[in-house]
Each structure stands twice: as C-alpha cells, then as structure tokens.
Amino acid sequence: MIARIQVPATAKRGEVISIRVAIQHPMETGFRFDVNGRAVPKNVINSLIVRYNDAEIFRAEMGSGVAANPSLQFFTLARDSGELVFQWVDDAGQRGEERVQLAVTGP
C-alpha cells in the first residue's frame, strides 16, 4: 500500500503541528459489483493509529463512508524530538506502516 505522510521536519516545542496522511486504498463499500456481476466484498481501512514516541496521539476508526484513497489531516503538540509511527489495517487484514522523524527545537 502506497502512503504519503506530511509532517514538518522541524517544529518548536509547544507548537501545534499539522499532520496529513494519504493512503492508496479503494475503500470498497461492499455495495459494488464487478464487470461480471459479482459483488465486491467490503474492504476498507478500518483503523489508523498514530503514535508519537510510543504514545497514541490520534486514532481513526473508519467505515465505508470514508472516501476512496483516504486522506486525513489532524494536529498534535510538538513535545520532544522523536518518531511518529503510522499504522493501519484493512478488513482483509492487510497492514501498512510508515515512520517519520520530527526534530523539536527550543526550550
């Protein structure tokens, strides 16, 4: 699964930073039929968890109402330098993971 993550490379301590995630996924609703008339089973990324230095900072529980190739933007407080870990899983059990480094400066 191709995913793109946007996090500023550096931030000041205490700054609220924007985080954007985009994942290539059809987010199959389960209500569609293929060209041969067979129902396409529901398969959506049902969970995305974001951890910042091991502490969960954001979680999305999603259903078929989230658009294909899901995109999310949310915010977090820059506390310490470290790693942001993005993990997600779809109904078929396929998992994805991305890691991004964040450098926090200032007192």
Partner: peptide, 15 residues
C-alpha cells in the same frame, strides 16, 4: 500536491 490523490499513483510509479 499532497491533497491531489493522483500523486499516490505518481508515488507508486516512482517506486
């Protein structure tokens, strides 16, 4: 360029 979903295909093409 981040919001454009077509860039996911470009990113895959790059790989």
């Amino acid at each position: 360029d981040f919001a454009n979903p077509g860039m996911l295909w470009v990113a895959r093409g790059e790989k």
